[in-house]
Amino acid sequence: MSIQRLEGAVSDLRQHRRAQPRGINWELVSQLLGTTLPSDYTELIDWYPDLIISDFIAITRPGPGREERFVDSQREELEDLRGFRDEGWTGGHEVFPTPGGLLRWGGSDEGDGFYWRTAGGTPDEWTVVVGSRNGHWADLHCGLTEYLARLLSGQAEPHGLPANIEEGGGTVDYEMDDDNR
C-alpha cells in the first residue's frame, strides 16, 4: 500500500506534493469514526491536493479543523448505505462497523460509490469495493492507491465505470484550496 505506485501511474503527481502535511488530526478522526484509516489514504490526503479522476471520481477527505464534519458526513453515508443494504442493493456487502463492512472513500458525479471492505487485521489490509450506479458491485482485492494506479493505467477490472477510465485513458485534475498551500 504505497503511494509510489500511484506516482508512477500519474506522471505529474509528485510535482503536486505539498512541502508539509496538511495538519489533519487523524487521531480525532480515528476516535470519532471508531477506526484508523489505511495509511496510503492518509498519506495521499496529507500530502496531495484533491484529486479528481477524469472529471468523474472524487476522493472524500477531511480538512484541517473539519475532522468532525468529515466524520459526520461518513456517518450519514453509512446510514444511507444501511438503507441500501436493507433494500438488497449492496451486492450482499455489510456496512461498517460490522466486521468486513463497507466504509466510503469516494464517489462519482453519477452516483457510483467507492468503498473499503473493512476486513483484515489492520486498515492497511482493507480492499477496494466499487458499487456502480447500475447495481454492479466489484471487489478489487487491492488498496486505494493501488486501485487508482490500476484504474489510471488501464489495469483495473471492468466494473461499470466509463470506458475512458477502464481503458487507461483517465486523467487527473488537481483541485487546490486554502488548505492545499
Rank of each mutant, 00 (worst) to 15 (best):
N164R: 04
R150P: 09
L161P: 01
L152C: 01
E146I: 14
E166F: 09
C142D: 11
W137D: 02
L148S: 15
A138K: 12
N164W: 08
S132P: 01
E167L: 04
E166I: 10
P158I: 05
P162D: 02
E157R: 04
A156D: 05
W137N: 06
E157F: 01
R133I: 15
G160N: 07
E167P: 09
N164S: 02
A149V: 00
A138M: 11
T145A: 15
G154I: 00
R133M: 14
W137Q: 08
G160I: 00
A163L: 12
G169Q: 05
G168I: 00
E167V: 04
H136N: 03
A163D: 12
L148Y: 14
L144Q: 10
A163Y: 08
G168H: 04
G169P: 04
H141F: 15
L144N: 10
L144M: 15
C142V: 13
N164A: 01
T171C: 05
Q155G: 05
P158M: 03
L161Q: 00
E157V: 03
G135L: 11
A156W: 06
G135Y: 11
P158D: 07
W137Y: 11
C142Y: 12
E146Q: 14
W137S: 05
T145D: 13
S153D: 01
G169C: 00
L151T: 05
W137R: 03
R133E: 15
G168E: 08
L148W: 14
H141D: 15
Y147P: 08
L148P: 14
T171G: 02
A149I: 03
E166G: 08
R150F: 09
H159T: 05
G170E: 08
R150D: 12
G170Y: 00
L144Y: 07
L151M: 11
P158E: 03
A163H: 12
E167T: 13
L152H: 04
L140T: 06
G135S: 05
S153N: 11
E166S: 01
S132Q: 06
E157H: 11
G160C: 03
L152K: 02
S153V: 06
R133H: 15
L161F: 10
